[in-house]
């Protein structure tokens, strides 16, 4: 499949650029963190079985029959592996990811990228024996709160008064602090434009009367 431009010539797509990334936990945005998720048994590539429990025959996705496993992943699990990333001008592909769920009872899954290099991480591109250094910069990042395993830490949270949220009513902005949009008539050089604005103001005032 090719795309032809309006003049009949071919829309040429660049060959994807292959970038060499040598992983280290210290290069990862999630260093020292661990994400735990549930997935169906069967795909032994992402993550590898060693990071997951044995299949649980009594646990399945809603309506499913495949056994689920529970996987725990942290950046150090990937050691110093080398990844060949492919950059096509819009996306960098090749970092291990997969779809997981918070529990087997969830109907919807979420995509987890398990290796997420920090901004400024160096990757290399080699052509004809010449290596050039490039850096990665995250342009779109999603964050998911990690679960707190110690439920007792939530025991003291009480939301019966505003103060227990950590702020008071006086912290709320008052109406006078909210700026009101005022037409800049000084920039309305033409008479006709001023008249249009005038009609808009009349229409607004009529509306107010109607409601009052």
């Amino acid at each position: 499949m090719i795309a032809l431009k309006a003049d009949g010539t071919v829309y040429a797509m660049s060959e994807p650029m292959v970038l060499n990334y040598v992983h280290a936990a210290s290069k990862d945005m999630n260093e020292n963190k661990e994400i735990v998720f549930v997935k169906e048994d069967g795909n032994n590539h992402n993550p590898v079985p060693a990071l997951c429990t044995a299949p649980t025959a009594s646990r399945h996705y809603p309506g499913g029959t495949t056994d689920v496993v529970v996987c725990s992943v942290e950046p150090s699990d990937f050691g110093t592996k080398t990844y060949k990333l492919r950059y096509n001008g819009k996306w960098v592909n090749g970092l291990p990811d997969m779809e997981g769920r918070n529990s087997e009872n969830d109907k919807n899954g979420f995509r987890v990228t398990m290796v997420n290099p920090k901004a400024g991480t160096v990757v290399t591109h080699t052509v004809g024996g010449v290596t050039t250094n490039y850096v990665l910069k995250p342009l779109a990042v999603a964050e998911a709160f990690l679960p707190e395993s110690n439920a007792a830490l939530c025991n003291d949270i009480n939301f019966t008064t505003v103060a227990q949220f950590g702020w008071s009513m006086s912290d709320l902005p008052s109406a006078t602090m909210i700026p009101t949009a005022i037409p800049n008539l000084g920039q309305s050089a033409g008479t006709s434009k001023f008249e249009v604005l005038g009609r808009q103001w009349r229409r607004i005032s009529l509306s107010i009367r109607a409601f009052s």
Binding site: L19, M29, V92, V112, V135, V141
Partner: peptide
């Protein structure tokens, strides 16, 4: 504490 998933990277000459 959050787990960050990068959906898009840019690539820049170092």
């Amino acid at each position: 504490s959050t787990w960050k998933t990068v959906h898009r990277y840019g690539v820049y000459n170092k």
